[in-house]
């Protein structure tokens, strides 16, 4: 082991912390190493010199310490709950006013309306419209409604025609030729009626409201009469 290690051991020994085994090893080294022996001598002198710096003794100001550890007294406004709440309220109002001002500054529209405070970001775009345009839009809407109703009626008519055809097919299977002739006549009449209705319906999309309603009622009457006739036939 080198002298560096033993010099550390010498210091530990001089402060009486060296263990017995290490102490024996150090003593053996010191008997053979003059440099380390000299180091120990110098160390003893240094320790003695260090001892010349005597301790100072200045008692602590315990009163000042007690004062320092005490929590600082509250200010007059903090002691009174009313003042404390008032100050918090004022602070909250200030924050609200500053916030609203900042919002207004950045372009947010702030208004007090019937419903309460209204914030509107950006401009609301309301398109300008003329009376003629409004009429046109309403007519278009009505036309669309009429077209929809016509489509529904056409659908109902198709369904009825289909059912009628099925019914006639069933009847035709029966052997009564007279009845067949009668039914064929009836069928012919109804087919014509239905064709008429189809034609009327095709023109109906462009009709006025009054015309439309009148035609609708007529169709309903024709359909109802056909239904009652068929029911009578069945009986």
């Amino acid at each position: 082991m080198d002298c560096r290690f033993f010099r550390e051991q010498i210091i530990v020994e001089n402060y009486e912390e060296l263990e017995a085994e290490a102490k024996k090893s150090l003593e053996a080294h010191l008997q053979t190493c003059r440099e380390c022996t000299q180091f120990q001598v110098n160390l003893n002198e240094t320790q003695q010199t260090l001892d010349q710096w005597e301790e100072v003794d200045r008692p602590i100001d315990i009163e000042a310490l007690h004062k320092a550890i005490q929590p600082k007294p509250l200010s007059w406004w903090a002691r009174s709950p009313a003042w404390r709440w008032l100050s918090w309220g004022v602070a909250a109002c200030l924050i609200l006013v500053i916030s609203l001002s900042a919002l207004a500054w950045i372009g947010v529209d702030i208004k007090w309306e019937d419903r309460g405070l209204t914030l509107r970001i950006g401009q609301e775009t309301v398109p300008e419209i003329t009376a003629q345009e409004l009429v046109r839009l309403l007519q278009a809407e009505r036309h669309a409604t009429q077209v929809e109703i016509v489509k529904q009626l056409q659908g109902a008519l198709d369904e009825f025609s289909e059912q009628l055809q099925v019914h006639l097919d069933e009847r035709q299977k029966q052997t009564n030729a007279q009845l067949t002739l009668i039914y064929q006549g009836l069928q012919s009449q109804r087919v014509q009626d239905l064709e008429l209705i189809r034609q009327e319906l095709q023109q109906l999309a462009g009709a006025t409201e009054a015309e439309f309603l009148e035609t609708q009622r007529a169709f309903e009457f024709i359909l109802a009469s056909h239904v009652s006739e068929i029911q009578e036939d069945i009986k």
Partner: peptide
């Protein structure tokens, strides 16, 4: 310990 040794050597030299 190494800081102590270095420090004491330095002090010895200075003193």
């Amino acid at each position: 310990k190494s800081r102590m040794t270095a420090g004491m050597e330095r002090l010895s030299r200075m003193l």
